[in-house]
Design a protein around this nucleic acid. Structure first.
Length: 426
RNA sequence: GGAUGGGUGGGUGAGUGGCUGAAACCAUCGGUUUGCUAAACCGACGUACGGGUAACCCCGUACCGCGGGUUCGAAUCCCGCCCCAUCCGCCA
């Protein structure tokens, strides 16, 4: 959520940012509505506070009169305060309404894209930030897509998942299951080596937590919900991990806070099915190792680049061809100011698959969850939050299987062999 | 799930209707003293929103788990919810 203060002081910049997200002039008028609503809110608060101050003053006097035994005077004053009560109540209701309305307006405004983010409406306007300059795997004509390889080598089973749960919940088996575990361990070890603290968070979160990172109210339809207990299954580890610091005021020298977590991720993906979603390309449950950083605003973009470096190293070690996209305004997530996507080449499908999304949210999340630090002058400031997948398993597995298929079997990249305990799937 | 007792500032913890935004102690920070360290002493020390000021700051309001209620006035009384501890039940 953007701060009203920022909208007021930098309305031009915010409006320009929204234009990059393809907002029309008409839509951008919401900024004026917000400022107007905030003016009303402040005026009402002033009136209410003055009223309450008067009430408090009189009440104190009543207490004193009572203490002095001046009962009649006290009673007269009581009547006076009682008379003001109705007006106070009205002001209070008005104030609460305005506050709620203001918040609802603010919930509709996405983050302002960073100045380096290109304008655009969708995928087609994303810029290739780093192209793949190496060779693509040379696979034979009859190369199998990963869903066929999975059948051939009994690595995972979708039909079985349907029996147990429903579509989009694969059951991994044998070397397929071991491969999952190996990748998780591989990713976690590298994150720990890069200075991230490993955490193993709950997979169910409450409403406050879902709100903190912006899943509520923006992306409610994306999450599985447990109405009876008022809990949500996490769509990414970002949600519980970033919220660890919700409401905290950190010391400046505690920044950056670096955390990593492996969790399964659950996504309803309602209405997202269609072409290109076979096999592991899109599933309701997948495993992911996430890296999260809470950083000083002055350093957050440098940190974003470092996170790109971290993910790049993982993909190099896995010997997967990859490219990095800088998302355009229209494709950048609601809460993000700047997002890079990583895509790996899926040899048999002959397409790039998104395996990681690395974002700087600036103060969009920290404002909502009041995640702050005390600067050198002792002033309290909102911290920047960042996160990235490092990495999401399902599609990595798809690419690994497809790209490494040989007549003898599927070879395992060298760096991964000590984790899998086998060099080939045959 | 049942019973009982609790949820107060960074921590411990006092506070049963007005003098309490909240004692005291600890921690932290600044100062005095000191050959250095320690100790002692003095002082500062919550957050949000709003108002005033160029700023240091000053003022107002709200917040003692969350939400509602009673009252001129609520940390304190009443109701609902959440959470924690202990015991019982169940159990990986």
């Amino acid at each position: 959520m953007l701060q009203v203060k920022v909208i007021r002081e930098e309305k031009r910049r915010i409006a320009n940012g929204l234009r990059k997200r393809n907002w029309t002039a008409k839509q951008i008028r919401i900024l004026d509505q917000i400022l107007e609503k905030d003016d009303q809110r402040r005026a009402t608060q002033k009136a209410l506070d003055d009223m309450l101050a008067e009430n408090n003053r009189l009440s104190k006097q009543i207490g004193q009169l009572m203490g002095q035994g001046k009962k009649a005077e006290a009673e007269a004053m009581k009547a006076q305060v009682s008379a003001m009560k109705e007006e106070t109540k009205q002001l209070e209701e008005q104030f609460n309404t305005l506050k709620t309305e203001l918040e609802e307006l603010l919930y509709n405004v996405p983050n302002c894209p960073h100045k380096s983010v290109p304008k655009g409406s969708g995928e087609e306007d994303n810029k290739v930030f780093k192209a793949w300059d190496g060779p693509l795997p040379a696979l034979p004509e009859n190369a199998l897509p990963h869903w066929d390889l999975a059948k051939k080598y009994q690595l995972f089973d979708f039909e079985l998942g349907v029996k147990l749960t429903g579509a989009g919940f694969p059951v991994y088996r044998g070397k397929g299951a071991k491969l999952q575990r190996a990748l998780v361990a591989f990713f976690l070890d590298h994150a720990i080596k890069a200075g991230f603290e490993e955490v193993l968070p709950p997979l169910l979160v409450n409403e406050d937590t879902a709100r903190g990172t912006g899943q509520l109210p923006d992306k409610e339809a994306q999450m599985y919900t447990f109405e009876k207990d008022n809990l949500y299954l996490i769509p990414t580890a970002e949600v519980p991990v970033t919220n660890i610091l919700r409401g905290e005021i950190l010391q400046e020298d505690q920044l950056p806070v670096k955390m990593t977590a492996y969790t399964p991720c659950f996504r309803r993906e309602a209405g997202a099915w269609g072409a290109h979603v076979r096999g592991l390309n899109r599933v309701h449950q997948f495993d992911k190792v996430e890296i999260v950083q809470v950083e000083h605003p002055d350093r957050s973009y440098k940190t974003l680049q470092q996170m790109l470096g971290h993910v790049s190293r993982l993909l190099k070690k896995l010997e997967l061809p990859y490219r990095i996209l800088l998302l355009c305004g229209g494709d950048t997530g609601f809460a993000s100011a700047k997002t890079f996507d990583f895509e790996v080449w899926s040899g048999a499908q002959q397409r790039w698959l998104e395996v990681s999304s690395v974002s700087n949210f600036e103060t969009f999340q920290s404002n909502r969850m009041q995640l702050r630090y005390r600067d050198a002058d002792g002033k309290i400031q909102l911290a920047h939050t960042l996160n990235g997948s490092a990495l999401a398993l399902a599609r990595i597995v798809a690419a690994l299987l497809e790209n490494n298929q040989t007549p003898e079997g599927i070879t395992i990249p060298k760096a991964l062999q000590k984790y899998t305990g086998f060099k080939i799937i045959d």
